[in-house]
Simulated assay, not measured.
Amino acid sequence: MGQGAPSTREVTVVLDGYSFLECPRWHDGRLWVSDFYTNQVVSTDGRGHVEVVAEVPRQPGGIGFLPDGRALIVSMRDHRILVRDESGSLAEHADLSGAVPGLLNDMVVDDRGRAFVGNFGFDLMGGAPLRHTTITRVDVDGTVATVADDLCFPNGMVILGGNVLVVAETFAGRLTAFDIAEDGGLGNRRVWAQFGEPPQTEDVGEAVELLQVGPDGICADAEGAIWVADALHARVIRVQEGGEILDEIPTGLAVFACMLGGDDGCTLFLCTAPSFPEHERRPVREAQLMAVRVDVPHAELP
């Protein structure tokens, strides 16, 4: 399906009554997702059953899983990554407070258990000017290292082929790729997909008006394409390397993250809400988890 031809597939509501859902991950038959302003991570089978799997008082964000199955959960406001054991107990896995200039954000964990984490880089909700920032790697032993810089709001991330990290730079309107070296370093930076010209402004409001796509959460499928939550235009798009939009599904509400899952990997889960500003989302429960069937199943990480 070419650009400009939105899909007519049916989008259904799986869960509702949440504050702001983000960072969905399909794991072991269930979808895990963070609800920012209730400070909870919940999991669902996609058929209505819901369980609170973690309480993160300083706001849960990115989610990933170590090779032994334990969950890693970003604690956004105190710049920590927590590890959840099989009993559900949380402990500190790493403290990134000395390495990052803003709230922690999304995260992807590779097959060796190394976590790659983005951060806001500036006070988005407080109206500060746009600032570029970093990606941090956290090793299995909790060691922290900055592995990339000069990124314009690094957001959702996927790992393709085991050694290519692709990150959504939301306010630059692009997906950027790096090769992951044997030692976990990032190199060979390149544009994976560019959606129009990057806005040349430090004003968030102006940038939002100029962006053709606001790439937020992302996930990959078995054909090497990436589904991108376009946070600014109430849709999710399927993109191939080079930037061609292969498919588009309108959602009715703004969509901030997406994840392929379900028994056959062909259910695309969507984290939706009417808007993103914290002062609008925190006091209400208008966020929904939606789902739509697609043709190509989940692959790669997360």
Rank of each mutant, 00 (worst) to 15 (best):
P297M: 07
V50F: 05
V294D: 10
D141A: 08
E223L: 11
A231N: 07
I73A: 01
R84D: 04
S89I: 07
I245Q: 09
V56P: 04
N39D: 13
E55F: 06
V41G: 00
C266G: 09
G243D: 02
R285D: 12
M157K: 12
A287L: 05
P283N: 09
R30V: 13
A91G: 14
G127Y: 00
I81T: 00
G142Q: 03
G64Q: 13
F20G: 02
E223H: 12
I245A: 09
I63K: 00
A115S: 13
A291T: 05
Q59F: 13
Q240G: 14
P302K: 15
Q212H: 14
P250R: 14
T12W: 07
E182I: 12
R25C: 14
A148V: 00
V108K: 03
A128W: 02
P6G: 11
D150E: 11
A54D: 04
R190C: 07
V56Q: 04
S19T: 15
A148P: 04
L301M: 14
E280L: 14
N39R: 11
G161Q: 11
T143N: 09
S97Q: 06
P101A: 02
A257R: 09
P6E: 11
T251G: 12
A254T: 12
V164Y: 13
G98I: 04
G61W: 04
E241V: 07
V53C: 08
F153Q: 04
D179I: 12
L175R: 04
R58P: 02
A225H: 15
G243P: 03
V294R: 10
E209H: 05
R131C: 03
R114E: 02
V292I: 11
V50C: 01
I63H: 03
L175M: 10
V204I: 05
D141H: 08
P129W: 03
S87Y: 00
C266N: 10
A5K: 15
H27D: 13
H93N: 09
V158M: 12
P283T: 09
V74C: 05
V100K: 04
P101T: 01
I249F: 09
R58N: 12
M1C: 15
G118M: 04
I218Q: 10
D85S: 08
A115P: 10
E300K: 08
E206R: 06
S19E: 11
D150K: 06
D221A: 02
T170Q: 00
P101V: 06
A71F: 03
Y18M: 10
D203L: 00
L268M: 10
L301C: 13
E280W: 11
A291R: 06
L31S: 02
P297G: 07
G185K: 07
E244Y: 10
A145G: 10
D35Q: 03
V138C: 00
F36Q: 15
G184V: 08
G102N: 07
L130I: 08
L130A: 06
G46I: 05
R131W: 00
T201K: 00
D85R: 06
E202A: 12
F65M: 12
V144K: 07
A225I: 11
R235W: 02
V117Q: 03
V53M: 05
F36C: 13
F153Y: 10
R25M: 14
P199S: 01
S87P: 03
H298Q: 13
A5H: 14
L301P: 14
R189C: 05
A229Q: 02
I218T: 15
